[in-house]
């Protein structure tokens, strides 16, 4: 075989082989598991640098349980991340976004590569002085030193300006509240929250704080105080799906539990289910209201069975719903 033929054959094998490999590899079905992915990118709040997917800690396992449940309910990755980061102090993204406070982190390696390539280029143009070292005492390079110094100062200045610019808006995906001057909601009184909300009534990310405050009122049984905040979140165009659903579900339950307003309650649950069709809470509460308010145990039975089809239910929830299902399917009145 002549050298020429050998070369041609080799090039052909390299090109065809490379292409076939690329096609085979790139068309491989993705086995990316959302739960696993989310588990990898969120830091376990009580661990040391471990993700919630890797950690055996109880809190990490709880959080993974929540992730599984939310994925099963059909929430988006963003909504689930938002919920986890806002409900667990100390949980942060391990995959820093290329924006806000961590944009610089992504830019720096690229800048280093460029300056490395720049140094090599410069060295090739100016052999004998391979790197822009300040060559003090060498008159002939005075001009060069000046240029080098200016470039150095300029790039340092640029880095500082860029860093300052991005640090200014150090908003991670969950720092809506932090931007309002509050770091940890647990330490904030209801009055302060009311004041912050009143002062930032049009802030696009106020919904997180509204929900937190409403939740406190709700848990304390003060439906009247909770109502306007939930309503505002439910009507807000800036609310995430998760926030809207949480608000709608609470509104529905308060309407029934506080005012026996069956129709209004069912309307709220239906709105919630439009956003998140598999939301366990919405389905379950709608079933309860249908059973108790509309005296329609058959419709309730249907809903309860639907929930139980999910594999992701925590055990105690499952037992609760199974008990209700048993009672409703026998036509008993609701407890």
């Amino acid at each position: 075989m002549s050298e020429r033929v050998r070369n041609l054959l080799s090039v052909a094998v390299l090109i065809v082989g490379g292409l076939v490999i690329a096609v085979v590899v790139l068309t491989a079905p993705s086995d990316a598991d959302r739960v696993e992915h989310l588990g990898q990118i969120i830091k376990c709040p009580v661990c040391q640098g471990e993700s919630i997917g890797d950690s055996p800690a109880d809190m990490a396992r709880d959080m993974m349980g929540l992730v599984e449940q939310r994925v099963a309910e059909g929430f988006s990755d963003e909504a689930i991340i938002d919920e986890l980061l806002s409900s667990y102090t100390g949980a942060v993204l391990l995959d820093p976004p290329a924006s806000g406070a961590t944009l610089l982190l992504w830019l720096l390696p690229g800048m280093a590569l460029l300056s490395g390539a720049g140094v090599i280029w410069w060295w090739q143009r100016n052999p004998g002085e391979e790197i822009a070292v300040p060559t003090a005492g060498q008159a002939r390079s005075g001009g060069r030193m000046l240029v080098g110094g200016l470039i150095l100062a300029g790039s340092l200045g640029l880095i500082v300006v860029v860093a300052g610019f991005f640090l200014q808006d150090r908003a991670g995906p969950n720092s809506g509240v932090a931007n309002l001057g509050v770091e940890n909601l647990d330490e904030v009184s209801n009055e302060t929250m009311e004041a912050v909300i009143a002062a930032n009534i049009n802030h696009p990310q106020i919904n997180g704080m509204r929900l937190a405050l409403a939740e406190r009122y709700y848990l304390a049984g003060d439906y009247q105080a909770a109502f306007p905040h939930y309503l505002s979140v439910a009507e807000s165009a800036n609310a995430t799906d998760l926030e809207s659903v949480s608000a709608l579900v609470r509104l529905g339950w308060m309407a029934w539990d506080g005012n026996q307003a069956t129709e209004a309650a069912l309307g709220m649950f239906d709105q919630a289910l439009e956003i998140a069709p598999e939301s366990t809470t919405a389905l379950y509460l709608k079933g309860q209201v249908l059973w108790c308010g509309s005296s329609d145990p058959e419709a309730a039975t249907e809903l309860f069975s639907e929930i139980l089809e999910s594999d992701e239910l925590p055990d105690d929830t499952r037992r609760l719903i199974e008990a209700d299902l048993a009672a409703a399917s026998q036509g008993l009145a609701c407890a």
């Binding site: 990898q40 990118i41 830091k43 640098g49 993700s51 100390g90 942060v92 993204l93 391990l94 995959d95 820093p96 406070a101 961590t102 610089l104 982190l105 720096l108 390696p109 640090l167 150090r170 991670g172 720092s175 770091e183």
Partner: peptide, 23 residues
């Protein structure tokens, strides 16, 4: 950068960010 960035950022601005395996 990945190792020291979160430390430096937290030391100077108080902001907590995580830089982990995915990065």
């Amino acid at each position: 950068v990945g190792t020291t960035y979160p430390l430096i950022l937290e030391a100077f601005t108080g902001t907590q960010v995580g830089v982990g395996e995915p990065f």
